[in-house]
Design a protein around this nucleic acid. Structure first.
Lengths: 212, 212
DNA sequence: GGAAGAACTGAACTGTGGTTCATTTCTTAC
DNA sequence: GTAAGAAATGAACCACAGTTCAGTTCTTCC
């Protein structure tokens, strides 16, 4: 045997792989999925097109990984914000605000992560992402129920509806193209919306309850 | 001149055009946008591929029209349900229920109309569609404000958030693939969610108001 | 230094589906 | 019936990515 990857080479390989991932991420965050062709990604990462395929089986897998990373960061931030000892309302407000602020800061990316058309394989990744968001909110609600701050209700549905409301109001096609309004106002309104949507403890008009 | 379309021919032309549109609609409602290639549409309409191009400039335009029609029907139904003399809460409940029931009845179509990846030109049509939904809800809210049943608030935002919540809970990736739960329960919960999300008249915690 | 073999390159390939257009069939009007 | 011209046909065409791979460059180790 006359060749075996040295540690140095291994590191360079990893670095290139990383550069490809970052390049793909940046292209998505700038111009969306459409602007992120394999050739463009390779060019921005200063490698040849073929090199991308030495690090990833195909375009779909590459972008699935980009999505997974970016999504994880977002979900982590929301989860973090919703964790704590305060009352549910307070934590919900923090979670919503975190979601909103981050989405508004990187709109193109948020759109790509949440709503933009993508390959099926990437779509699967996105599905996990949205589920993760829903679960973060669901967990928060569940905690509220356990502590007696919220009545038992259809947690998953409430959580999903909140995620939908946030997505639509912030990055969906209904979101204002040019944020003429103060983002703080927008966020305050959104927080108010989500807090109102939480069932009140004495609210018995729900009519039924689902077990966890 | 030795040829001029007779009325009979004109009618046959229109009929063919209609058949192509219906064929496209059916394919979308069954298998989504992907299953609706030009060749498939033509085959189902019993015409040759090329014939489609005698009635539409291209695939995008054809499907834009399909979307426009299907969307209009949906929005009309919601608008109709939200029109009336009853209190806002009642009309909101009716609107939400209408939206939900129709979406659940034709899930594949609803998904195609709301969330499925499509051509940019069709996407533009979809944009109108979602806007129309938002406007329907917005109008309803505005009426509530005028009648003193709701406080002045950011109507567009509330409306958009409600549309998002409905879309996500019903047809988005978070919707249960197999509706194990009774649709009536799902709908009742959704209605409850949306009603809660409406600001109460005496709710002064909104902190600010936007003019129409 | 040089042989063995991995990593890189980028032009060529490929598969998919929308679009075209020369040909055929059908309508109209005399 | 027949000439003029529209409508229909569907196989061929094309554009556009993603992917491949033979040739080149770079690493390793003796």
């Amino acid at each position: 045997m006359a060749y075996r990857r040295t540690e140095r080479t291994e590191a360079r390989l990893a670095q290139t792989r990383e550069r490809v991932l970052r390049s793909a991420h940046e292209l998505i965050a700038t111009g969306g999925y459409r602007a992120a062709g394999v050739a463009a990604v390779a060019a921005r990462a200063d490698v040849a097109t073929g090199t991308v395929y030495r690090h990833f089986p195909g375009k779909a897998e590459l972008f699935a990984e980009v999505f997974r990373r970016a999504s994880q960061r977002e979900v982590d931030a929301v989860t973090q914000a919703s964790t704590g000892e305060g009352p549910v309302q307070e934590r919900m407000a923090a979670a919503v605000e975190t979601f909103a602020r981050r989405a508004l800061r990187g709109r193109r990316l948020a759109w790509a992560l949440i709503a933009e058309p993508v390959d099926p394989l990437v779509e699967a990744e996105r599905l996990c992402f949205r589920r993760a968001y829903r679960d973060a909110f669901s967990t928060l609600l569940e905690d509220g129920v356990r502590r007696g701050e919220l009545p038992a209700h259809h947690l998953e549905l409430t959580a999903a509806a909140i995620v939908g409301a946030l997505a639509e109001a912030l990055v969906g096609p209904l979101a204002p193209a040019a944020p003429d309004a103060d983002p703080d106002v927008l966020i305050a309104d959104l927080v108010a919306f989500c807090l109102r949507a939480l069932p009140a403890r004495k609210d018995l008009s729900d009519g039924h309850q689902l077990p966890a």
